[in-house]
Amino acid sequence: MEALRFTGSTQVLEYLEVPVPKITLPDQVLIKVAFAGVCGTDLHIIAGEFPFSNKGTKILGHEFSGTVVDVGSSVKNIQKGDRVAVDPNEGCRCCDFCHSGNPHYCNIGGIQNTVGIHRDGGWATYAMVPTNLVQKLPNSITLEQAALAEPLACLSHGWDMLSPVPVGSRILITGAGIIGNLWVSLLHLQGHKNVTVSEPNVTRLNFVKKLDTGYNLITPDQLTKNRATDPNYAFEVVIDCSGFCPAIQQGLSLLTKGGKLCCFGIPPPDQTITVAPFDLYAREITIFAVNVNPFSMVKSIGFIEAMGSRYIAYEKLGIQVFELKDYRKALDLLKSGSIAKAMFKL
């Protein structure tokens, strides 16, 4: 089968033929991959910026959907022919974090044991995963849409943390990549109208226009000018989807009293922002970050069903589809900001 494999020690990503995995354990599920996404985390891994990216050689791809072709002897919840999405994250199921319902904090599992990062993932014709990570799809969801289930599961976790957000709240989204576009879709679905999207790349802002939300689409320079001309220009909620520390810093400065900053994008581990604790106190600012998707895949499927093709359509979201062998072109376009997301069709 074809696969994209990454070696952390040499930072080499290679396209090659490898054997099809065979079921050796009773809880395993073999999936014929249909669609597999390229996440910003993948770009950090390939660049050697992700903290756990130097452990061995693995097939990347932690966002994928497909069809079950074989199952182990103890698998009961899934059968051959089922269409599925994959939750790549799980805990050890033994530690205090896991037992308290927070497997994403697990020091053994969690982000340190993710399918597509530390275990072979979906950038291949076939992928092998344990049955507890497989989410069966309803007939109302296509395999194309289901390939976004994992990032939307992360959004679902973030939405639970951010809520309640009263309709009418002034909301700023910084970064109009795929995550920013999915947040735009989620907020519009929930009835929010007073939303501003800040993005320096005009091409990406044009992708947001295709979602036809009527939101205010501006550049970071325009944000600065608006604040300079109106000292009361501020937001109740800022959601950073860029992972770019200057954008996070700007968003923090634009929060009104009682405001909330959601750090969703993943910044480089060596970058920092400056926060004055007295300012947090004086304005009662809340800052929180979102780490993956603990038990939120079911909610993600619910979001996809609710959004439907009104929002979850590749053309509207700026997603371009590639064959696996064209991965270099896909990564180059993604890095340049010419597309919001690259998706491999196997």
Rank of each mutant, 00 (worst) to 15 (best):
Q249K: 05
F235M: 15
L25R: 15
T196N: 09
G101C: 07
K210G: 14
T229M: 13
Q145G: 00
K55Y: 06
L217T: 01
A306N: 11
E315Q: 10
I59V: 00
A289R: 12
D230P: 10
I339L: 07
E90I: 12
G66R: 01
G214M: 03
V33I: 10
I171F: 05
A340C: 09
L255T: 08
V321P: 12
F6D: 11
V115F: 10
W183P: 10
K225S: 13
K55V: 12
K22N: 15
F303K: 04
V18Y: 09
A147R: 01
D230R: 05
L211P: 07
R204P: 14
K210C: 05
E315D: 13
G101R: 11
R204I: 07
H62C: 05
K55N: 15
T174C: 07
C262Y: 04
G251Q: 00
E150V: 03
N54L: 13
N201D: 04
V115M: 09
P138A: 04
Q222H: 11
F35S: 00
G175F: 04
H157C: 08
N232E: 08
S163H: 13
S309H: 12
G109K: 00
G56R: 02
V208G: 07
N201L: 08
N216M: 03
L223C: 10
G40N: 01
D221Y: 05
F207E: 06
L137K: 03
G177E: 03
I78S: 04
R170V: 02
S300A: 13
L217I: 00
L148M: 07
Q11A: 13
G168P: 10
H157K: 09
V184Q: 14
A36V: 01
Y314V: 03
A127D: 01
G318H: 04
G72W: 00
E2H: 11
G37C: 05
A276T: 15
S336E: 05
T229K: 15
V290N: 14
E2V: 09
F244A: 14
A247Q: 09
V86S: 10
T174D: 04
Q222F: 02
N77F: 03
G116Q: 05
K22G: 15
A282K: 13
A147T: 00
V84W: 00
K345V: 07
I273T: 06
W159P: 05
I59M: 05
L25M: 15
N102I: 07
G318D: 02
G109H: 04
L254E: 01
L13E: 02
G308P: 14
P21M: 05
N226K: 13
G109A: 07
H188D: 11
L217V: 01
P220H: 00
V129F: 00
V12Q: 13
Q145W: 02
T256D: 09
T10M: 12
L280N: 13
E305P: 15
T219Q: 05
C94G: 10
